[in-house]
């Protein structure tokens, strides 16, 4: 399991637009770099990020080889009522990680 940092505002009012910030540990090996032995290191990157709020996709992103290691993503969403935020990262070599966070409104 890759280490993940997820930052969600602590107090959320109903109808508020909040910023979610995520950081995941991943090498994002571009597939263009030569290794120590001179051979090209095979590509190993994240391909897709999807954020769902109670089964509704609120944000999605596609990654390309030029994105730095340990990618940081920030997106905003409007919260009307509480629910579950599901964040999923998918990548090469079968990488698939899902994190869920409960969001409550005051």
């Amino acid at each position: 399991m890759a280490r993940v940092l997820i930052n969600i505002p602590r107090e959320i009012r109903a109808g508020e637009t909040i910023a979610i910030r995520t950081l995941i540990q991943h090498a994002m090996e571009s597939g263009y770099r030569p290794g120590a032995d001179g051979n090209v290191v095979p590509r190993d990157i994240l391909r897709r990020f999807t954020a769902r709020f109670d089964d509704e996709v609120v944000f999605a992103a596609e990654f390309s080889p030029a994105i730095a290691a340990n990618p940081f993503l920030s997106f905003t969403m409007n919260v009307v009522a509480g629910g579950t935020l599901t964040l999923r990262w998918e990548g090469d070599n079968g990488f698939d990680q899902t994190e869920t966070r409960r969001i409550t409104v005051a």
């Binding site: 280490r3 940092l5 930052n7 910030r21 950081l23 995941i24 540990q25 340990n70 940081f72």
Partner: peptide, 13 residues
């Protein structure tokens, strides 16, 4: 900010 500092991934570890 710790939420954006990638070194915090290692700290977590």
């Amino acid at each position: 900010e710790d939420a954006t500092n990638p070194a915090m991934l290692w700290v977590q570890e």
